[in-house]
Design a protein around this nucleic acid. Structure first.
Length: 112
DNA sequence: ATGTTGACCGACT
DNA sequence: GAGTCGGCCAACA
């Protein structure tokens, strides 16, 4: 059963749509899950043109800083995250150590 | 089919 | 801790 291999954009959209409220992911991490660890920029490009219904506000940069091209800028992105329950640091960065989320692993309950 | 761009990432200073 | 440089990959015109 080979899993179908949808376009990179399709996978990224699926991953972003799976981010729970109050959590955040870095572009590089999403890119890696999508199949290309070095295609973080592509994720951003998809965010700009891709589906506007997805919670891109939960997507931040690798160091926890907010996205630059978000509609409204860092300030708009910060407000959106705070509305989700995410706290922003003085430097304008989120606590990735606590808010970084990764998708569930297959066979998690069966293996243990 | 080719070239350019991009909501980035990692390492160095 | 903050700023700078190059690179890498896929989508778009």
């Amino acid at each position: 059963m080979e899993e179908i291999d949808p376009s990179f954009k399709q996978k990224v959209c699926d991953i972003v749509a799976a981010i729970p409220k109050g959590k955040v992911m870095s572009y590089g991490q999403i890119a890696s899950l999508a199949g290309s660890p070095q295609a973080a920029k592509i994720v951003g490009g998809i965010a700009h043109q891709g589906d506007p219904s997805l919670p891109w506000q939960r997507v931040v940069k690798a160091d926890g800083s907010l996205a630059a091209g978000y509609p409204g800028g860092i300030s708009g992105h910060q407000s959106a995250l705070e509305d989700e329950g995410v706290e922003i640091d003085e430097t304008g960065r989120v606590n990735m150590k606590e808010l970084r989320w990764h998708p569930p692993i297959s066979g998690q309950s069966s293996l243990l």
